[in-house]
Structures are given as structure tokens and as C-alpha cells.
Amino acid sequence: MSAVTQLNPHSGFASRFERNIATRDPRWVKFLVLGLGLTFFAVFLLLPLVAVFVEALRKGWSTYFAALVEPDAAAAIRLTLLAAAIAVPLNLVFGIAAAWAIAKFDFPGKQLLITLIDLPFSVSPVVAGLIYVLVFGAQGWFGPWLSEHDIRIIFAVPGIVLATIFVTFPFIARELIPLMQSQGRDEEEAAITLGASGWQAFWRVTLPNIKWALLYGVILCNARAMGEFGAVSVVSGHIRGETNTMPLHVEILYNEYQFAAAFAVASLLALLALVTLAIKTYIEWQAGRVSLQEQLR
């Protein structure tokens, strides 16, 4: 998960290996391995991606835009953005707090906390959704109390937000923990001996040191928040124009044989993925440049 700290696209190791006759492989090996990789990439990754955009535009640009501005689609897009806009900032705060606690302090139950942070990764999203239905649903623990007070969580927007938060919880914390652990607490201790308050030490020392990893975690967290299907599907109730997110809307359209519309909305999600990848690559490049500079000196 800590790709930011490990990946270094500028290491130049591979090309050095290749230029040296003593370590170079025969041509046919090179082409075989490269060919296999490229074929796999084309069939399983590139082809579906192209298909999404081709299918979306099959009936022309006007149909494409009509499918996106159609009220139910627009509502789904708004809900997806809303869920992400709530889940990502909350997980940003939770993630930094958890990583800070784990990396900089020793306390009983630390190992348990690390394991718990991984829980959303290890459990099926459907189960995650079901947990919320069991807790907040009409037949759940708090169901009767909630309906008495006229609060709707399941089959409503709060449920979708909760499920999204749960599923995307680990992204930021997992990204930060290894980095913060490797950085140790020397710099924070130095800041405090120099008279900084805990808050100043965090803003002036800790945060600048983790900014690239943090941004990387936010990007991944956001991508997952917008693309989540399983957990959200269970708690959503699929009410059109009300509790449908983009992935759910795509499924409904597809089941109703509105292929062009389904692919149009899907293309937005695919576009989000591409943008995410582009930003991620940029961050890796930036972080890699910084760490390369540190290595060179």
C-alpha cells in the first residue's frame, strides 16, 4: 500500500541491467515476456475500457449527453458526489488520527487497532452493508427507536454515506502508517524541545512530511468512495432519483436494456478512474523526485 515510498520510476536499474551484455537476456525471451504482458493488458484492460466509451457513444453525442442530464442520472451523480464529499474528509481526519496514534505512541491494544483498521478490506462489501441493515434496519437493533423518531438511515442517504465511510476507511490510514513509522518521532520531539506546542508540531513538522502519502491516500479513497457498489447496494433500496448512486444507476439501466445510457454513466466512472490514475502517477512522480533528491545527496 505504501507505493509512494517504495516506487521509484527513476532508479534506472532496469536499463543498466539491459545495456550490460553480461546480464542481457536473449531477444526471444524479451519478446515473449513482453508480448504476453501486452496481450494480457490489451485483452483484459484496454479492450473493456475502449468498449465502455464506444458503447456509450454508439448512438451519438446527443444521446450520450441526454443520458447524463436525465433527472435520475443527475440525481445519482449528485448523490455519489455527496457521499464522497462526506466520506473522504471524515476518513481523512480518522485516517490521520489513527496513523498518528499508531506510529507515534505506544499503548495497549495497538496491534488490535491495526487489525481493526484492515477489517473493511478483509470483509466482503455485501457483509459490510448487511451489518448496517442489521443495526439500523427496521428489524435491526435500533430500528424501532429510529422509526419512532422518524429517522431513516437504511434505504436512505445516511445509510449510503455510512456504508461508503466503512468501506473506504482503511485507505488513508494504511497509506500513512508505514511512512510515519519509518519517519519516527525524532522530528516531533525536536520541535517540542524547541518550544512548539503539539498542534504546531503537527502542522509545521508532521503534516509536511506526510503530504504526498496523504494525497495519494485521499485519491484512492475518493476513487473507491465513488465506485463502491456492494455495500451501498445493500443499504440503498434502489429508489430512483433518491438513493441510487452512479454504480447502482448503471446496473439498473443495464438491467432495463438501456445499454447506451448505462454505458454513458459507466463512462463517467471510467473517466474518474483515468483521472485518478493520472493524478496518482503525478504524485508518485513528485514523491519519487523528492526521495531521489534525498538519495542523491
Binding site: D186, A190, A191, R204, V205
Partner: peptide, 29 residues
């Protein structure tokens, strides 16, 4: 509190703030 003890501490591995220039490091306090 450490802040109020008026001690200067020099760490074994220096613990300089890596994202700040030398000037800013010294100016931090």
C-alpha cells in the same frame, strides 16, 4: 513540560526538519 524546561536537545541522528531549509530549521524555535 519539555517546552518550559529551557533545554536544548541535540539528537543522535540530528532530527533536522527535512522539508525546511537550513535557515528555517534554525529559525523554527
Amino acid at each position: 513540560h519539555v517546552r518550559e524546561r529551557q533545554v536544548g536537545f541535540v539528537f543522535q541522528h540530528y532530527a533536522l526538519f527535512r522539508h525546511m531549509s537550513v535557515f528555517e530549521n534554525v529559525a523554527f524555535g
